[in-house]
Amino acid sequence: MKPSPFEYVRPRDLAEALAAIAQDPDDSKILAGGQSLIPMMNFRLARPARLVDVNRVPGLAGLAADGDRVRVGTLTRHHAMERTPLPGPLGDLLRRAAAHVGHLPIRTRGTFGGSIAHCDAASEWCLVARLLDAEMTVRSQARGTRVIPAADFFQAVFTTAMAPDEILTSIALPALDEHYRTGIAEFARRAGDFAIVAATAAVRVEDGLVTEARICLGGVAEVPLRSAAAERVLLGARWSPELVTAAAEAAAADCDPPGDAHGDPAYRRDLVRALIPRALGLDVRR
């Protein structure tokens, strides 16, 4: 459980970081919170020859309003998200999602952008990003800045649209008006574990009608999955608990989850059915 040897680089600013990673992109890794990378290195499942530690690069952390969006710096720690004073349905969602990420000593180190770059199908932040169609800003020394929408960003397990020489710098989320109902519900075996299945929702209800519906599921596919079926059921319909149940049914029927030691596909579908209503604050029992 000791990592293989590597060279350690600690750039002082983004330009230095970009230059460092550009030298040998294929054998280098960005070190953010280290809460996913270091366990993998301890198990020797990851063995980068060089680590570029961005923890002391200024300007990469924090939340800032950016027009009708909120821009989250990649190095914003889970713990800071948990305590963000951001008002409204987006702030609620971020705080509630953060509280599900691991435990306090993980959250003090682990970062929002690190989770997104790591691309675990059950990661709360990946779910939130896909739910809200976040836009990821990435940079490289060679090609400068590009913006990747969430729909294209998450490609497969631990695989994103970023090139090895690119650094994720910030994530833009839409500021949600007061008509949104947002939430997250997940099922994990123990407190703080990665979810077996997680559901996030952002549904806009105005005058009793659903004007926008977003449902995103974790743990049912290689990457966070927007449930088109559930969203179809919701959109334009009159808001009611029964509607949500119907949407959950549709989502469960529509997804094709994997099976493993924690649950077979049928069980995961059951969880989808149970969790979508809970994500929207409905305490459904039967």
Binding site: Y8, R10, L31, G34, Q35, I38, P39, N42, L51, D53, N55, H79, L104, P105, I106, T108, R109
Partner: peptide
């Protein structure tokens, strides 16, 4: 002042 897992941080950090 913040609790961290010292197995998930390198000494150089």
């Amino acid at each position: 002042g913040q609790p961290v897992r010292s197995c998930l941080m390198f000494a150089v950090q």
